[in-house]
Amino acid sequence: MKKTKFLAAIGGLGLAALSVFLIAADHIDAPAVAGTSTDITDFYAFQGENPDNLVFVANVQGLLAPGQPTEQAIFDENVLVEFNIDKTNDLVEDELIQAIKRNDSMYFFMPTTNSQTGLTSTINAATQIGVVKISTTTDVQTSTNDDGFKFFAGPREDPFFFDFVQYGEILAGNAPGGFNNPGSDTFAGTNVLSIVVEVPKSKLGSPTPGANPLNPSARLYNAWVEAKRKQ
């Protein structure tokens, strides 16, 4: 039912609006990555259930259809996903956690000294910090390493919510009344591929204050995620 509504909404908007319609958060945000295995859809970073930990979530390959066998949602072995953490407010990462699929598992690496601050990365196999079997709907796998890191990879419900159809109508000049109340979640019923890492804050080290000009004394990490393809 949701899928039917979803497709009907796309049809109603017309092909010209399709590229506008399907982008939100970072889903299909640019022509070169749209619909590819490097397309990052969302990034989350929050304090864990254990307040001594931070959780990083990277979602890729969005808008996987509801009801579709999750076996069709496959991580690409040629795509490296990187969590970047800057502690010194120069927007150059000081800590790096890398994730890549091999066979039935996701492998994680954390180089001790990060010399990979540009657009090209390599993997040093000796810096592996963890591995977890990729989950399915019925077989949910997580792992923990000796330092207290936790790892997960697999298809999940897309946590993003937004009435993107109506936003498209507004941008197109078709909705002078603005948003509808209540709105309709365009991303309801769709899945993504999630990579989740929980990291003890002690393993990241403390950030220096100054990232936020509105609150200069706050100690904030600058965090972002990158997707890189093997050449």
């Binding site: 970072d26 490097t38 990034f43 490296l80 091999r102 657009l119 090209t120 390599t122 995620v225």
Partner: peptide
């Protein structure tokens, strides 16, 4: 396992949208 090769950036994200 083979983890060799150079990986070139294609997508990036910090804040949503």
């Amino acid at each position: 396992l083979d983890f060799s090769g150079n990986f070139q950036q294609e997508d990036q994200m910090g804040r949503p949208g």
